[in-house]
């Protein structure tokens, strides 16, 4: 018997894959002009930068509080309006309930809403409705429609049609069909999307301010440009705190409505 000290054969395809990956990394790094020297200078800068960030200093408590409240308001209103708009769109986009001539346009709207980052949408709305919270709300409504609309449509496409048929057999009108045959089947998943979207809107509402769409992002960006790094640090800590509280609340709400509260992230 030939001696075979290796318990497992070497996988040539995998070896080739790793080599290709390594080659890509080297190529991409050279293309993007990453050098070790640049990285090291950066580390020096980083040490100085962290030194200036600490200790965090709340230079303008009023501005900070106002920004945080505004972010929170943007998140709440955008989630509410977004859910309100995305429910009918998601329903129309479900291919098992609607004819193709209705579902394709709805699916196109959802795809369009999903394809742009909320910050880019916020830029367009800042141009349309001016600086301020309204632009942020509208941008996040678009993002919410993209996300909830898509997942809601997918959830509806997976429902059992037997219950729908049973409701239909009683001669129920269309709205009753939806509210007694379809919605109860997707409610638990809907709670998952809605809490997730609130969470995600809260994160994004702290960002849209960078392009002037209201919220704490504007304060953060201004502090950055003034090199007030200790205030930046304080703002960041507040944002992280707010997001963590939001995450805990979202988990709690999911626990109230569902047995096991879990939804895929992003």
């Amino acid at each position: 018997m030939a001696a075979n000290p290796r318990a497992f054969e070497r996988n040539r395809l995998a070896t080739f894959g790793w080599l290709a990956l390594a080659a890509y990394v080297v190529y991409a790094c050279s293309r993007l002009d990453f050098t070790w020297a640049r990285f090291m200078t950066g580390l020096d800068n980083g040490a100085r930068f962290i030194g200036r960030m600490l200790p965090p200093n709340i230079a303008q408590p009023d501005t900070l509080l106002k920004g945080l409240t505004e972010s929170l308001e943007i998140a709440v209103l955008a989630s509410f309006l977004g859910i309100l708009v995305s429910l009918p769109i998601g329903l129309i986009a479900a291919r098992n309930l609607m004819p193709p001539w209705a579902s394709w346009p709805a699916r196109a709207i959802i795809a369009l809403c999903r394809s742009f980052h909320p910050v880019i949408v916020a830029i367009l709305f800042v141009k349309a409705v001016g600086f301020g919270a309204l632009a942020g709300i509208l941008a996040l409504v678009v993002a919410s429609v993209g996300f909830i609309g898509k997942l809601f449509a997918e959830a509806i496409e997976e429902i059992s049609l037997k219950q729908v048929e049973a409701v239909r057999a009683t001669g129920a009108p269309f709205m009753s069909l939806i509210s007694y045959g379809v919605l109860p089947q997707v409610f638990s998943r809907f709670v998952g999307f809605a809490t997730y979207q609130l969470d995600s809107n809260l994160r994004n509402s702290t960002m849209v301010g960078i392009v002037g769409a209201g919220g704490i992002g504007g304060t953060l960006f201004a502090a950055f440009q003034r090199f007030d790094y200790d205030f930046v640090c304080a703002i960041l800590l507040c944002i992280i705190g707010m997001i963590m509280v939001g995450e805990v609340l979202a988990t709690w709400v999911r626990g109230v409505f569902l047995e096991r509260g879990k939804v895929d992230e992003e």
Binding site: E70, E73, V76, L77, F80, G130, G132, A133, L134, I137
Partner: peptide, 14 residues
Amino acid sequence: IVASARTVEVIPEF
């Protein structure tokens, strides 16, 4: 929702 809608600064003219 009510609290946010009442306090958020939206300029209707815009």
